[in-house]
């Protein structure tokens, strides 16, 4: 028996595949780009959902991971395209235009960054946690603006999308396939984690860290691990985002980005597997439909968000597939 939630999840994911395929038939490349954007932003949200939704760690600094992932792509690619090594001493490190290499680098850098930010931030809770994660992201934002090597305020262009063996990444549908595969991988990972022993401990630590410690599990270690995994997922999404736009600028590190990723999660449904995907899709649909009518479409997004927070805590997913209770 398929539960209602599984059915809704399957439909949502199927729609995300159908739209670009239809766009391919109808020759509407713009729609393919939009679906790719939804996939990548949703993946960033899946990362945050692990920390915020399941772990109760309200991070307003996930732009740090999204942006740093983005800059890793931009920096590696620009060095490779300009035939300039990143450094020569003590080791020779070259840039790269191979997506798998870039992804591994982005994941490692964001993992280490999340370990540092998490290790310090998790010493606080509540509003202080929100503020300290925000502060870390803002530090990186101002650093990126004032560091001229990689474009500073103007950002960094990547003339050609990075490559993936066997695919033509400049072809919209191919790049969609890559982004979609990443989203699926992130969803699968998130689903597995949440149901594992680790997930049990993480969700318990969100609700009652004192009890978790009393049964012999250190909440700090569990939450820090979740924060690192969360940062890595969001970071890889950021790496893809640079390739989508062939451009990266400090704006991906700004707190607006953190806020938007958080909006995806809340709009779609906190601690719901495909919540961030639904949230990102609704966000893009609103942006595209209302954005054409009014410059101030975000006013209406804000109104919608108020309604969700006040009257429908479960977000869109809470409406489509009401939760049946546990965890």
């Amino acid at each position: 028996m398929m539960s209602r939630e599984h059915l809704v999840n399957a439909i949502v994911i199927a729609l995300l595949v159908l739209v670009p395929l239809l766009a391919l038939v109808l020759d509407e490349p713009y729609l393919i780009t939009l679906a790719t954007r939804v996939s990548i932003l949703a993946m960033a949200g899946v990362g945050l959902n692990l920390a915020l939704g399941y772990g109760g760690l309200v991070s307003l600094g996930h732009a740090a991971f999204f942006g740093v992932g983005g800059y890793v792509t931009g920096i590696l690619a620009s060095h490779a395209l300009n035939y300039e090594p990143i450094m020569q001493t003590p080791w020779m490190i070259q840039g790269s235009t191979e997506m798998p290499v870039i992804w591994i680098c982005a994941a490692l850098v964001c993992g280490v960054l999340a370990l540092l930010i998490g290790a310090l931030s998790l010493r606080t809770t509540g509003v202080y946690f929100i503020m300290i994660t925000l502060a870390f992201a803002q530090m990186l934002y101002y650093f990126s603006i004032s560091w001229p090597t990689y474009g500073g305020e103007d950002g960094l262009s990547v003339y050609l999308r990075n490559t993936f063996p066997g695919l033509n990444t400049m072809n919209g549908i191919h790049f969609f396939a890559i982004s979609f595969a990443w989203l699926l991988a992130a969803l699968w990972l998130s689903s597995a984690l949440v149901q594992s022993r680790f997930g049990l401990a993480l969700q318990a630590a969100r609700q009652n860290p004192v009890r978790v410690a009393a049964v012999g599990i250190a909440p700090y270690k569990v939450q820090l691990t979740a924060f690192v995994i969360s940062g890595v997922i969001t970071g890889v999404a950021g790496a893809l985002y640079t390739d989508l736009n062939r451009f990266v600028s400090p704006s991906v590190l700004s707190w607006h980005t953190s806020g938007e990723i958080m909006v995806f999660v809340i709009l779609g449904g906190v601690a719901r597997l495909v919540g961030p995907l639904v949230g990102a899709a609704v966000f893009i649909i609103l942006e595209q439909s209302l954005g054409g009518i009014s410059e101030n479409w975000q006013f209406w997004l804000g109104a919608l968000l108020i309604v969700v927070v006040l009257h429908a805590r479960g977000g869109v997913m809470g409406f489509l597939a009401p939760e049946n209770g546990h965890a």
Partner: peptide, 29 residues
Amino acid sequence: VIPNFSVLQNVMLAVQGKSGHSFRFFRKA
């Protein structure tokens, strides 16, 4: 106790704490 866990999940958490293996990520608990 863990309010949004079932009674069984609460005790599973304690068994898991005793076993010392909370960093297993892929098998369903």
